[in-house]
Design a protein around this nucleic acid. Structure first.
Lengths: 226, 226
DNA sequence: CGACACCATACTGTATACAATATACAGGTC
DNA sequence: GACCTGTATATTGTATACAGTATGGTGTCG
């Protein structure tokens, strides 16, 4: 999703717009509660309001913006409450997808995890947070692909992005949070590659729960309880 | 969602259109794989293509229609595979929502379950399947409201509808499947009202799993493995 | 000074017009 | 006859014009 969008803009403008806005929101260039007027977005990207409206519907679907009928659209507010919601859902669904991914027999795809892991380490070494998160998302999508459950992928797509907003914020506050993410991610990848569904699930659930707990106080301090 | 839409059509046309199309799809008047052209829908409901496009985006979000860029939109195909996907996700998420609903202290809302249950029994006695499912959906949304987890509600909204398609189909094949649904539903309501989150969760998971298994063969016979 | 009504403005919501693209079919070429 | 190419048509995708509504300010009245 993120990435790989140059020169694609000629087709599927709404999807591409949505991806670009997504990035703006995840990486905090569009801030929580900031208003988005259709005309502003249209002017900024040099298109008309029609594709903008559809792009905003897509963002709404993924919980990145909130619409109030006939009033407008705002970047979704962040709060500890929202964070809790996203993470309680993630625990269940990421656990399930890890289990189903582990049960896949697609050895070649599983081998990809090794490359991703080294890319993650490189990004971390270079202190390139943006790249780190982009690769991390690719890892998530690899997991989703392995699981081969389209419905689950659809649901997780809309959670992953919200989660990433919080994770990127946490990184900005304290860059060494990446270390935690990297260790966790490596362990998850290993569990999936090993092919033991039940333990992959349990590990994933535990790891996400850990991250959740470690980030929780900081989120409250930054955004309030909600 | 279903229901309560007469005279609201003046505002929020896309949402209302989506609800009506939703019903058409769930109750099988729009069949699996049937093509939907924007102009056809627009003409049928006496509106222009703009709100139709947005309504179709909403249906896409909930997995009820599939879009292929620049080719068109089709009612999502049903299959045992898709059914399995929806139900594996439902087990996790409905379990979670039941737990969180049980933990709510909103006694008045919980009391509503009693009324819903008697409505369900009436609908069953009258053999009014459509009404049965409509009330059942209201029960689900009451549970979601009690849980007070907007993110979870957003995710479940898109699963519930897909699930209902399969459940309505099963009903058409064999009307006494409603009996199973009623018993299950009553037990779930009781568990939530009792306020024991963990057991509400476990019960819900088991009950959904039971329904899943009982319907699975029939779904394969009707729609193929996928 | 406060409250209410009115109007201007800005924006969302809808309709329509236009552009671009996919599909089917006809005709030509090998 | 098989395959390719070009063109007609249907449908999606985008731009623009118009309608309706929420908001903020101004003025008037109590």
């Amino acid at each position: 999703m993120i990435l790989a969008r140059i020169q694609k803009l000629s087709v599927a403008i709404p999807e591409n717009l949505a991806e670009m806005l997504e990035e703006e929101i995840i990486f905090g260039r569009l801030k929580s509660r900031e208003r988005l007027t259709e005309e502003m977005v249209a002017a900024r990207y040099g298109v008309s309001r029609s594709p903008v409206r559809e792009a905003l519907r897509l963002l709404e679907r993924d919980g990145l913006v909130m619409r109030e009928a006939r009033r407008g659209i705002w970047v979704s507010p962040m709060s500890q409450r929202d964070f809790d919601e996203v993470y309680t859902c993630r625990i269940e669904l990421e656990g399930l997808v890890a289990k189903q991914a582990a049960e896949s027999a697609d050895i070649e795809k599983k081998a990809e995890f090794k490359n991703l892991l080294s890319e993650l380490k490189q990004a971390q070494a270079r202190n390139d947070a943006r790249q780190f998160f982009i690769v991390d998302v690719r890892g998530s999508f690899l997991t989703y692909t392995l699981a081969g459950n389209k419905t689950l992928t659809r649901l997780l797509g809309g959670l992953e992005k919200q989660a990433l907003r919080y994770r990127y914020h946490a990184y900005e506050q304290d860059p060494k949070i990446i270390q935690l993410s990297l260790d966790d991610t490596a362990r998850i990848y290993d569990a999936i590659t090993a092919g033991d569904g039940e333990s992959a699930k349990a590990m994933t659930e535990n790891l996400i729960r850990e991250i959740w707990q470690s980030m929780r106080a900081g989120i409250r301090d930054a955004f309030g309880e909600g």
